Simulated assay, not measured.
Amino acid sequence: MSTIESILATARKTIQSESESIANLIHYLDEDFAKAVNIIYNSNGRLVVTGIGKSAIIATKIVATLNSTGTPSMFLHAAEAIHGDLGMVQPGDVVICISKSGNSPEIKVLVPLLKRFGNTLIGMTASKSSFLAKESDYVLNAYVEAEACPNNLAPTNSTTAQLVLGDALAVCLMELRNFKSEDFAKYHPGGALGKKLLLRVSDMLDNTHKPFVTPDASIKNVIMEISEKRLGVTAVVENDKIVGIITDGDIRRMLNSRDTFNDLSAKDIMTKNPKMVKSTDMVVDAFNIMENNSITQLVVANEGQYIGIIHIHDILKEGII
């Protein structure tokens, strides 16, 4: 049985081998890559990504990344393409064909058919002398010296290189499209990511729990308001404008320093100029303010007008962070 040390040594060797293969891709980028990006960007059709074997699996991931970043894409399995699915390819579509060797039997059958249709063909291969490379309009060089597999057989470095080139394509297209986080949000409305990108402070406010007192309110009323609304805080409001905030921590500190508070009012213990957010601000930005200032609540106000309180517990319950 292998020792822990030998297992870790093999793992480190694999990661090192793959990282070096990725780093070497920088030297293989050329005008074909830039031209391929421009062709895809200027296309009025879709981007079809095809492959066979492990390259087909990489192709599906590349398609997923492109679709989520503004480039309409679809996956076409090379083997299924020659048995009817080729009808998915329409005039004006750009096709990326992925194959390490560039000489797979399915690729040799598929490529002439794509050429006959007149679609622009971009080949992604580790061999620039392969059939695929010679027949492609543009070649994305995914060359690797060897696989991380000890037998130099199982696709490891080669598929990682394909994946990285696909990511590079997607990022280049994002920059050309000036693709922003709000654009990204449109394609990711669900789950924690969707909430992080879409949820605004106004979406989380509970108007039935909107604690506030006036500056002249007694400390007893302040304590009752904080206790009743259960947010650990109350705003101090005058003429519908925020003038301060009182937290349960402020109450505890006051009680520790005084034997009586009958002569005090809200304005005597409130914190002036509290941290605030607008109701239109993103919830994730509100969370960052809380985290950076080691606080658990934020006053929500629009142009100084009190709207409510947002609490860090509500944010965490939404699973945004």
Rank of each mutant, 00 (worst) to 15 (best):
K100T: 11
K186C: 09
R116D: 14
I307P: 00
S73H: 04
I312K: 05
A11L: 12
A78D: 02
G84D: 04
A142F: 03
N292L: 15
S101Y: 08
F261V: 14
G319Q: 11
L25H: 04
M276N: 10
A78E: 02
S21K: 02
N302S: 13
I40T: 02
D137M: 03
C149L: 08
S136I: 05
F184K: 03
A142W: 01
F212T: 01
P211D: 06
A168K: 11
F179C: 15
V111H: 03
C149G: 03
S6Y: 06
G84W: 07
K196F: 07
T214W: 09
S265H: 12
H77L: 06
R200V: 06
G92N: 01
G190Y: 10
I226T: 03
D240E: 15
V237N: 00
F131N: 03
N221G: 12
V63Y: 06
F287M: 14
V233K: 00
I242M: 05
F131A: 01
D32Q: 01
A168Q: 06
G92H: 01
K108W: 08
P72L: 02
M88T: 13
G249R: 06
A185P: 08
K54M: 06
L169M: 13
L264T: 07
R200D: 05
L264R: 10
S129K: 13
N67T: 10
L140E: 06
G304K: 08
S104D: 12
T10G: 12
T50F: 02
G308Q: 03
